[in-house]
Design a protein around this nucleic acid. Sequence first.
DNA 1: TTGCAGTCAATATC
DNA 2: GATATTGACTGCAA
Length: 542
Amino acid sequence: GSVSDMLSRPKPWSKLTQKGREPFIRMQLWLNGELGQGVLPVQGQQQGPVLHSVTSLQDPLQQGCVSSESTPKTSASCSPAPESPMSSSESVKSLTELVQQPCPPIETSKDGKPPEPSDPPASDSQPTTPLPLSGHSALSIQELVAMSPELDTYGITKRVKEVLTDNNLGQRLFGETILGLTQGSVSDLLARPKPWHKLSLKGREPFVRMQLWLNDPNNVEKLMDMKRMEKKAYMKRRHSSVSDSQPCEPPSVGIDYSQGASPQPQHQLKKPRVVLAPEEKEALKRAYQQKPYPSPKTIEELATQLNLKTSTVINWFHNYRSRIRRELFIEEIQAGSQGQAGASDSPSARSSRPAPSSEGDSCDGVEAAEGPGAADAEESGGPAAATKSQGGPAEAAAPEERGEEAPRPAEKAEPTPSGTPAPLDADEGRARAPLPPEGPADGPRPVPNPAAAAGEDAATSAAPGEGPARARDAAPSSALPSTSAPAARRPSSLQSLFGLPEAARRDSRDNPLRKKKAANLNSIIHRLEKAASREEPIEWEF
DNA sequence: TTGCAGTCAATATC
DNA sequence: GATATTGACTGCAA
């Protein structure tokens, strides 16, 4: 009966207690073949162990970073009891192993002996090839990620940065040995971590790895070893290459991703990187401000005018939207942490909430900051919907608050940004609703009662009486990662849902947020407007 | 098809 | 030399 119920009506992960999660973990392991023989038959020796490890599974991850705060003075930042979970499961297999495997180089340290990192690499030409976790390990990390509790991505990256800088360890080394990512990716990740809820399983992986790494008491030590080894290997290679009079070998150490690849042809095929001129960027930004999602035609025109390839323009828009969105996340998170002072700014902290249906994708750090948004978003239809929808308005709004990226809000606020080399589609240039929010929203606007404020906004943007046709568009907007949209749309329900205190606190906290809201509203208006373009634009002119 | 997430890797900047 | 930025690419989902 339990099984039937569970299979037909599984609860979202976030709503499950640790015990409640157990069956799912078992199922997952079973699906993955991890439980292999006899595990399912719950009785017997497996039973205890598995359960045991199951319970301990989360510790290694949670241990340190759910409640960021404490700063890792020396090396192993957060490791209150790093070993406990692992050591306790001495006799156990599966899960415990999983926890330890993820980070090959650093992980296998239970015996305290450093061989793991040093030995293998030595044998192999490349000092480290741990990343692409080999077979089983890879599986493990994925399982870990899947089973991982919510992590405080911001806190984790913060701590990682601290540890790295404190110990003079480079991003490249860390990325390649621990995360399996390149320096640029690491930099980006550390500087702009996305909230856990916004991450896909794949995107969560680096954070789980980081957490595991932070939990490893010997993390720094091991990384230092790697560093030394790299250096040694490099010197060695250099010497040998010199003596062999071989053309310079790629000095890069780390992982040898390109094995067997013929370097010559690659060099020739390499196409030069496109570097957009400031004016071009500016033009693109303006075009973006007018229309975050340009039509193919617009893209074409833009490309022509700027003398760029259409693919470049397309890529630029994709990247810009995506990056702006991330900026927004960060700002929200930071704002959140500021506003909440001591309180955990982490999504994880919030995670305990019951809501997040479907793996809590609906709400992210942003919402977190905004509170109310979450619930709303969820209602809009599952994670997918939420995610998708969030994109739109969010990014559209983003530029507004983006310090450098989205300069001069004023300009943006202008209904008709001019001087833009970018042409507009017939349908896009039009009726850009007079962005009401900019003005009022921006100002001091005490907003004694957020509800009221939101109410206004809602009234403005939601353009009442939209009819079902609009409902579709409106819904997405509610899922805005941020902040605003939801609040704007359905003020009352939002507030009642998560309570005003949070919102109120926020409002008093910063203006930027207000701007964001305003920006989002603009975006919403714009999109709704666009959606309505097929109908009667007039009604959108407020 | 379109948009997005996640990355890579070239290049810019510190 | 390390880190930050950013155009391009891949894979996935709707």
